[in-house]
Design a protein around this nucleic acid. Structure first.
Lengths: 201, 201
DNA sequence: CCTGCGCCGGGACATTTGTCACCGCGGACC
DNA sequence: GGTCCGCGGTGACAAATGTCCCGGCGCAGG
């Protein structure tokens, strides 16, 4: 029996997947979580064989959770499940030692199959996505450039960002300019979009 | 037997819901669609009792599909299912004569129950969401202001927007300024965010 | 030790953005 | 008829943004 942890913030998706996976004769959903905090907590308590993690969760990223799990619960296989097949996501998932990476496009049948293969130690990655991740190259943004870009997505002004990050306005402008250059875009918001769609932030 | 059309772009969500709804003894999923075009096509062909429509779909909005369905297939009840409980969405759903409006937060059990109630002609709306929709008031943006704001979300410059909408740059700046004023924000991107989160665009 | 790089900041500058006052046009409404 | 409102546009102006210089500091790698 495969003991599985399911972390997914969208209630309907989570309960639907839990029902369907529990229907499989060799899979048992032993814990469910709607936030990364709950996921981490539950994982350490129930010590599942496989953790099925969504990336976009309200209190953080499933990718960070995967990295923490690798350190604190090395025996647990991690299968990332996400809406967006962004190259940077896949790269970060691999760096966090995830065993599988699945997008929510395919039918549910793929999911149970992927869980079994992941438990067997097999890597489960969409071929087209892997190619895209390689061709897109690594994240060109430095840590600070990422921070500044991330703080700029919701329309914050230079002054806002400077205050939020405890930086000078000049510094913020310089980082924004660098990020715009590296993403070959024309302004901060195009740069932020490009960075998002590549999974760089 | 309730004959149901399921329109939802995310493959895994769609197939999961289809499986679970088909499990219900009195519900039969007679058609599935991943785009609004497919949904419309299938609806006119199979003439379902209830259409379960997602709002965010790649080729258009489920809200527009609901309005079309009201005209072309008046006997069909429409149940809107969406990720985001935005006040403007609910308002537009009501204007399109949708019978129900459900967010994807709750458990799947709610869904089958909602389908049955909708078929009985009962309106299914989350009380908290209805209150939010009323308190938020109607969409303050004019048609053009919406267009311009929508064209600005991805980081387009004034010149881009002017070209795309066949307007003068001055006009675009004026509409943007008006939209910023009406949303009481500080710049176009904050205005676009506010408009999105309220379901105004 | 020197070099490169990331981090942090300053100053100057051109461009873009946001604001405001003003114009005409047409449709709706009283 | 007059009034209001949305649409499209112009010109001018202040503020914000993006770019390019320039500095300094610390740290890793040859």
């Amino acid at each position: 029996m495969i003991r599985l942890l399911l972390a997914e913030d969208q209630g309907m998706m989570r309960s639907a997947l839990a029902l369907l996976l529990d229907l499989e004769p060799d899979i048992e959903v032993v814990a469910q979580a709607g936030t990364t905090a709950e996921a981490l907590d539950a994982a350490l308590r129930v010590r599942p064989d496989v953790a099925l993690l969504d990336i976009e969760m309200p209190d953080g990223s499933g990718l960070d959770t995967a990295a923490t799990l690798r350190d604190k619960l090395p025996g647990c296989r991690v299968l990332i499940l996400t809406t967006f097949g962004r190259p940077g996501y896949l790269r970060r998932a691999m760096e966090a030692s995830a065993t599988g990476f699945l997008v929510k496009d395919g039918p549910v049948e793929e999911l149970a199959a992927a869980v079994r293969r992941v438990l067997a130690g097999e890597r489960v990655i969409d071929a087209a996505l892997a190619a895209a991740a390689l061709s897109a190259g690594p994240n060109p943004l430095s840590d600070r450039e990422r921070d500044v870009l991330h703080a700029a997505v919701d329309g914050a002004t230079v002054a806002d960002i400077a205050g939020r990050l405890h930086l000078s306005e000049s510094t913020v402008r310089n980082y924004l300019s660098a990020a715009i250059g590296k993403t070959s875009t024309r302004n901060r918001i195009e740069a932020a979009h490009r960075a998002r769609s590549n999974g760089w932030i």
